[in-house]
Amino acid sequence: MLPFILKRLGLAILVALTVSFISFSLLFLSGDPAAALAGETASGEDIEAVRVLYGFDRPMLVQYSEWLMRAVRGDFGESYYFKLPVASLIAERLSVTMILGACGISFALLTAVPLGVVAAIRPNSIVDRFALFLSVAGQAMPSFWFGLILIVVFGIKLGWLPPSGASSWRHFIMPTVVLGYYAMPAIMRLTRAGMLEVLNSDYIRTARAKGAGEGRVLFKHALRNAIIPVVSLAAVQMGFMLGGSIVVESVFALHGAGYLAWESIARNDLPTVQALILIFSMFYIVFTFLADVLNAWLDPRMRSS
């Protein structure tokens, strides 16, 4: 198990370095940063002055290593727009996004996995049909529209939940449902398909032949094997929720990191965009790594390969 973890960790670090280089290069890919900073009316001399001031005149690799060293220590420079340290700007927003992401994926897993299991035990039953309906509806319905419907019904008509903001746990209920419902269909269908396949396998028949009860057969013998692909999918979904919950954050006016990214792109605030891309990518890398470790624990065949 340990060699496997070290191998995966090494791989994750390599990917992280590559991603960091790409996100650093964005600065140069999007045109001359000095010219952009100096503004439209700046003269050639002004631009050169800005170039020297920000160090853009030095070799790119030198700038990259400096930027990386600072980034590792949590220093992402100063936001062009807010004139504040990017790190503190993001830290403030990230907590909202992380709470939302954690709630979203938990909601998705807690509804999708049980529903998928029940649907697989009784294929074509009413529960299965209901689960299918839910997943089709979830896949077909845009998040912003579902969010608005919830706001109209529960926020305004019934007045049960606050329609926007992030000041209490009640503010997170509707965003969690919307974000979780986005991830739920894929997880549900993967769980159902996995369980259906595993329940028809020989080792399940062996477990029954040993005299194991249905609960034991389902949860000890079947689910552990069926859940393996679900873990990988959930890791990707989790990464997506942390980085890409822009729509949900906008609809519910939750000013999280996704919303900040969107704003910063619009404002050409490159240090902030760079830092956010780096952080979002790190989330993906960390979750993928954790999913690999979890899968290796679940499936011994993965450890030896």
Binding site: S201, D202, R205, T206, A209
Partner: peptide
């Protein structure tokens, strides 16, 4: 099942739980 009547299946490659 498994106590007084036991069963051995055809496919040893798949009749044990891989996990």
């Amino acid at each position: 099942r498994g106590d007084r009547i036991a069963m051995i299946f055809q496919e040893p490659m798949t009749s044990l739980n891989p996990a």
